[in-house]
Amino acid sequence: MNQPIKVEKTLTINKPAAELYRFWHNFENLPHFMKHLKQVKVYDAKTSHWTTSGPLDGTVEWDAVITDDRENEFIAWKSVENADVDNSGSIQFRPMSHDRGTEVKVVTEYNPPAGAVGDAIAKLLGESPKQQIGDDLSRFKMLMETGEIATTEGQPKGRK
């Protein structure tokens, strides 16, 4: 059995909580800024299907269900029973006073099984899951605040 992985990360985003909540609540938006998600398909108000973007044979999929949902404040979700990867997550939106935006806190937890699927997850998350969640959250902030995600991929360069 692999160790459970739990990470928390907080970031302040210069947008109203309602706007951030709305965007995140549509899980199909998550792959825009979450590097390791290839696709999320929303089935209905509660359930969705998540696919990671690992190497070909390393792709992992699961169904998830929303377990708690308070408008403009909080969303929690978890994988359904018997999913390949037992995982859960939540996001909290806390408006700041004095025009200082919204404090966003993300918590994710994975309980990867032993074997190939567990190894694929471990590979996907790399050595620093906290770093990766942090980077995802930074990209969420960029997208919300500026409408795009800063990149240099595809720019010209000289010979290496």
Binding site: E148, I149, A150, T151, E153, G154, P156, K157, G158
Partner: peptide, 9 residues
């Protein structure tokens, strides 16, 4: 080197 392209809106 290649000319630069628009990468973001």
């Amino acid at each position: 080197v290649p000319d630069p392209k628009i990468l973001n809106p």
